Amino acid sequence: MNRVPSPYSNTARRLHWLIVALVVIQFITALTMPDIGPNVVPGTLINLHLSFGLLILIVMAIRFVHRLSHPVPLEAAGTPPWENTLAHLTHRLFYFILLVGPFLGWASASAHRLPVSLFGIIPLPALAAPRARWALQAGDVHAWMMWALLVMIGLHVAAALYHHFIRHDTILRRMLPGR
């Protein structure tokens, strides 16, 4: 495979793959933890889910600031305008979901009287009063956003593979680690 110059810095690529790993861990904990309800007792999986959600928020905030200070073109040569528009929209949605989603989950945890801390080391304040209706609804929005994120990830991976194997362009290779 030829070396492909990438407009993405090493930092951008590392942050991308760190987010990928954290989101995979997050989905695993989400699928294995008990349902959050009025009588849920905080346990290891719930605490891990909340902690990894906070970690995603922190890393995404760093990634967002890095992206603003190191902009890169998403377009590849010869890409139709509709693909470029879709790429921009998709990236904005990824940032939105991964920056807003953790706050919604945190608010929901607060409404369910679940303590939120970063791996039990740094306790964080509640974002909502116990049983606050808006925060309980935020938990539902959080769940739907995460299912949407899962669909978007599938489409994102499919698009990267399409560009690599069908279009034979550099879209996938420029984000691969170690380039």
Rank of each mutant, 00 (worst) to 15 (best):
P81E: 09
S117H: 12
P7T: 05
E83S: 06
L99Q: 06
I25T: 04
P177D: 11
L161S: 08
P71E: 10
A128R: 09
G178H: 12
Y8K: 07
L161I: 11
V141A: 12
L104G: 06
I56R: 04
R167Y: 08
L18S: 14
V141T: 12
V59E: 02
L118E: 08
I28E: 00
T29D: 01
A126W: 02
L45S: 01
R63L: 07
S9K: 05
R92Y: 13
L104Y: 10
A129Q: 09
A77W: 03
F103V: 08
L136D: 11
A107R: 05
T29F: 02
P73T: 01
Q137L: 15
W144G: 11
W82Q: 11
Y95C: 01
N10G: 14
P102Y: 03
H142I: 13
M1L: 08
I97K: 04
A132M: 15
L45M: 01
S117Q: 13
S51M: 07
Q137E: 15
I28N: 00
P80C: 04
L99N: 09
R113C: 09
H112N: 14
I56T: 04
R92D: 11
L74W: 11
L48T: 04
A111C: 10
R113G: 12
R92M: 12
L161Q: 06
H156T: 12
V40H: 01
V141Q: 03
E75R: 11
R67N: 07
R113M: 14
P71C: 12
F103S: 05
I56C: 03
D140Q: 15
F96P: 10
H112I: 09
V59N: 02
S108E: 03
I46G: 03
I171K: 13
R167V: 14
R14Y: 01
L74R: 13
Y162C: 03
M175L: 01
L104R: 08
I153S: 07
A132N: 14
I19G: 05
R174N: 15
P34Y: 00
Y162V: 02
